[in-house]
Structures are given as C-alpha cells and as structure tokens.
C-alpha cells in the first residue's frame, strides 16, 4: 500500500521535526543540572547505608514505581499464559510433526554438554548479580533475567520434558504471585508500622556490609523471585507452542 508508506513517511518526518525542535531546548548533553539526582547522590549512601544509589532509588525512594512495574510484569505474564494456554488440555503434549518432510535435527552431544555446563555458570552468575543490589551495580531484575536464561538453556540442551520437570507450571505461577504479592504486603506492613507505605523499617547495618540497607535486599529478593518465576513461565508457555496436542482420550 504505497499510499500508507508515503503518508507514514510524511507524518514521521513532521514528528521528527517537532521532536528535534523541542529537544533543542534540553540542557546541553553531559550537563545534567537538576536537583533531584544530585541530592540523592549526596544523601543516599549515608542515609541508607549502601553504596549503590540506584538501588536506593529503585527500592526505597521510588519504591512505589518498582511495585507498579512488578505488577506490570505479573499482568503481562498472566495475559500471555491466558492467550497461549486457553484451550490446551492438560495432557502430555507430543512434539510437532516434521515440517515439509524434513525431520527435526536431533540434539547433538555437544549441544547437551554446553547447555548443561552453561546452566551451572548461569545460575552462579545470576545469583551473584542478583543477591546484593545494595553493594554492587546489580540487582534483582538483572540477576533474575540472567537466571531465567537457565530455563532457555535447559530447553535447548535437554528438551521440553526435562524443562517441564524442572520448572512445572503451577509452581512458577505460585512463586510469581508470592513474589509480587509479598512486595505489596511489605508495603502494607511498613504502612502499619510507620504510617508510610514502603518505609525502610529494618535495621540499616553498616555501609558495605551484606546485611545492611534495611528492607532493600529483602524487597530485592522477592522482586528477583517474581521476575525469575515470570520469565520461566513465559519460556515455558512459548516452548509449549512447539508441541502439538495429543487427541483427547474418550471420556476424559
């Protein structure tokens, strides 16, 4: 439809012009002036006893944003399972028939070896990254996203059945709900304790220690749980699409 391409190009050009005209008024690149970031940099590590100001912003100063974002992930995963699962019977699916007469390539030993080896490294690295957001530039999201890679590796290296046994669906759903729900519950609990939602009420410890920064590592752990469970559930649902349903048994 050439008319659409032409109209689209014209509209995009106009929008580009408008954006650039507006961006011309931005502070010059590399000269962030604003008070918000500077203030946080100055006070965060002292007030929250942690070196990573970004985690402080994520889980403490702007914790409500992260709570909302967690539930966005939650809602999206719920939507995906709903859309992809709808009429799936809970029988054991079989692999898809070969496409156009070409049988699927089997899994070679090399693939299995590297996948299994990779799983160990992935888990170690993911846990390392995710477990101390207050001390290093890592955090729950990053670590959990890497950890969820183990799901993909298992699928590639060991096949769908092994994947399914390691990460069964209901367990994922429950963990995901626990992760998201506990974040909200922590907020409610702090509301009850101190009158403000998501206040950092746990002991702050010393800067640089593992047990420091109060609720931040705790919230981070639940965020990591939710992201891990959510992504694994996602991979599971998409991996299921490579299977085809067996005919339903009579009377089932």
């Amino acid at each position: 439809m050439n008319a659409r391409a032409v109209l689209g190009a014209v509209a995009c050009a106009l929008l580009l012009g408008m954006l650039v005209w507006g961006f011309a008024g931005l502070p010059p690149y590399g000269h962030y002036p604003g008070p918000y970031g500077t203030l946080i940099n100055t006070v965060a590590s002292h007030e929250r006893q942690l070196p990573n100001a970004i985690s402080a912003v994520n889980f403490d100063y702007r914790g409500a944003d992260t709570l909302g974002e967690e539930f966005i992930l939650f809602a999206a995963v719920a939507g995906i399972t709903m859309v992809l699962r709808n009429d799936r019977k809970r029988t054991t699916p079989e692999p898809l028939p070969p496409t156009r007469g070409r049988p699927p390539a089997g899994r070679t030993e090399a693939v299995r070896l590297f996948s299994v080896a990779g799983v160990g490294v992935t888990i170690a690295f993911g846990v390392y990254l995710g477990i101390h957001p207050h001390l290093t530039p890592g955090g729950g999201f990053q670590g959990a996203a890497i950890l969820a890679g183990f799901a993909a590796l298992t699928f590639v290296g060991l096949g769908y059945d092994a994947f399914q046994r390691i990460a069964p669906q209901t367990r994922n759903e429950v963990f995901e709900a626990i992760g998201a729900g506990t974040y909200a519950v922590i907020g409610l609990a702090t509301l009850a304790i101190s009158g403000a939602f998501l206040t950092n009420v746990l002991p702050l410890g010393g800067n640089g220690q593992f047990f420091s920064a109060g609720t931040i590592p705790l919230i981070n752990a639940f965020v990591a749980l939710e992201v891990l469970a959510g992504f694994t559930l996602l991979f599971l649902e998409f991996a299921r699409e490579t299977r085809v349903e067996k005919e339903e048994e009579a009377g089932e």
């Binding site: 709900a177 729900g181 939602f197």
Partner: peptide, 12 residues
C-alpha cells in the same frame, strides 16, 4: 495496595 494484594492472593 489492597486490590493489588488481593490479586496476588487469587493468583497464588
């Protein structure tokens, strides 16, 4: 936060 928690409970 109340409906959010309820949603998580129902999901779990």
């Amino acid at each position: 936060a109340a409906p959010l928690t309820a949603a998580a409970v129902i999901a779990a």
